[in-house]
């Protein structure tokens, strides 16, 4: 309880049950997880084990069927769709397997999109988005549209977008799933770098000074998982194990 204000997000015994034509599918079963500021967590597990469902809850895209979900010191149960949208806008950055960039829209405008909904003026949006594109190494691709970019570049645009509003938590659901191994490794390296705080421009208001954004990655890659400070394994909607690699500081 006492650490609620400092945690980026905390799930307490959350369950998520889907109703499908009278049949209940329990995607998550009483999962508890606290993501501290600056954390680096990987989640792995077989397909259908509830990883994405958990990510959606952690990011305030969805609400638990039961249990409590604390986002930035607020329990989402009582929040309106509008309040949830504002929470996501200020505190969460999402990176998806399929990039989800707007077609016919430049990299710069894609990155700036969250700032539109934050009510920030166009000039400032552009400057901030350009800064983020520089950070992910795409300073020379700002005017490109998604179909003029490689998969790895698209995912880096998506990462820049996820970070543009200085969130405290970045959620990446299989961010390398559509990329070849080498490109995937680059993207992961970028996420690790951002988590380590080596992007001065990135630090969000709610992250402790000097440290990077908290990152939660869903991945199948054992090597990637091995480098994380916290590794979570899921099966059938429950967390079956949490491990820290030997020597990893918590």
């Amino acid at each position: 309880m006492t650490d609620v204000p400092t945690a980026a997000v905390e799930a307490r015994e959350v369950s998520r049950v889907y109703q499908m034509g009278g049949v209940s599918v329990t995607a998550l079963r009483r999962v508890s997880l606290t993501v501290a500021p600056g954390d680096y967590i990987t989640i792995s597990g077989p397909s259908g084990s509830g990883k994405s469902t958990l990510m959606h809850l952690l990011g305030g895209l969805d609400r638990p069927t039961s249990g409590q979900l604390w986002l930035g010191g607020q329990e989402v149960g009582g929040l309106s769709a509008t309040a949830m949208a504002q929470l996501r806008n200020r505190r969460i950055g999402f990176v998806f397997q399929s990039f989800h960039l707007l077609p016919r829209t430049t990299a710069l405008d894609n990155v700036a999109l969250p700032l539109v909904y934050a009510g920030i003026a166009a000039g400032q949006r552009r400057r901030r988005a350009a800064q983020l594109l520089e950070l992910v190494g795409l300073g020379n691709r700002m005017r490109h549209r998604p179909n003029q970019l490689s998969g790895g570049e698209q995912q880096r645009v998506a990462i820049a977008r996820a970070l543009v509003a200085s969130p405290s938590l970045l959620l990446a659901d299989e961010p390398t799933g559509n990329l070849d191994t080498a490109t995937g490794a680059e993207v992961l390296a970028l996420l690790e770098k951002l988590n380590a705080g080596s992007g001065g421009a990135v630090a969000g208001g709610s992250s402790p000074a000097g440290s990077g954004v908290a990152v939660v990655i869903v991945t199948h890659d054992a090597e990637v998982a091995a480098r994380a400070r916290r590794q979570i394994r899921m099966r059938d909607g429950v967390v079956v194990a949490e491990a820290a690699p030997p020597g990893a500081a918590r």
């Binding site: 949208a85 969250p114 909904y117």
Partner: peptide, 16 residues
Amino acid sequence: TREIGLRKAVGARPRD
């Protein structure tokens, strides 16, 4: 629909 989902994910309110 996907675009709407994405906009919502990055903070678009229902009203937007």
